[in-house]
Amino acid sequence: MEILYYGRLRDEIGRDREEIDPPSHVLTVEDLVAWLRGRGEPHASALAEAGIHASVSGQWVRGKESLFGALEVALLPPVGVL
C-alpha cells in the first residue's frame, strides 16, 4: 500500500509518500493511523492531531470505514484552514 501525505503531514513526516505493508489487523482509516503512529516518530507526532482524514480514488474515507483493496491512500490534515 502506498501512503500519500498532504499539507503539514508532508513536512512533519518529511516525505510526500511511502510504501508500507500494514499487518492484517489494519482494516480501517483509524487502524491505519494508529498503526503508523505506533511505528514511532515522526509519524507519532504528525498523526496525533484529531481529525486526520483519508481519501481513496478521490473519495473521502472516514475513520471507521474500510480500506479494503486500497492500493493508494492519501492521509490529509483537517480541512477548513483557508
Binding site: 498532504y6 499539507g7 503539514r8 482524514h53 481519501s55 490529509l76 490534515p77 480541512v79 477548513g80 484552514v81 483557508l82
Partner: peptide
C-alpha cells in the same frame, strides 16, 4: 470553507 481539501 468547511469541506474543500486545501491547506494553507
Amino acid at each position: 470553507r468547511a469541506r474543500a481539501p486545501f491547506w494553507r
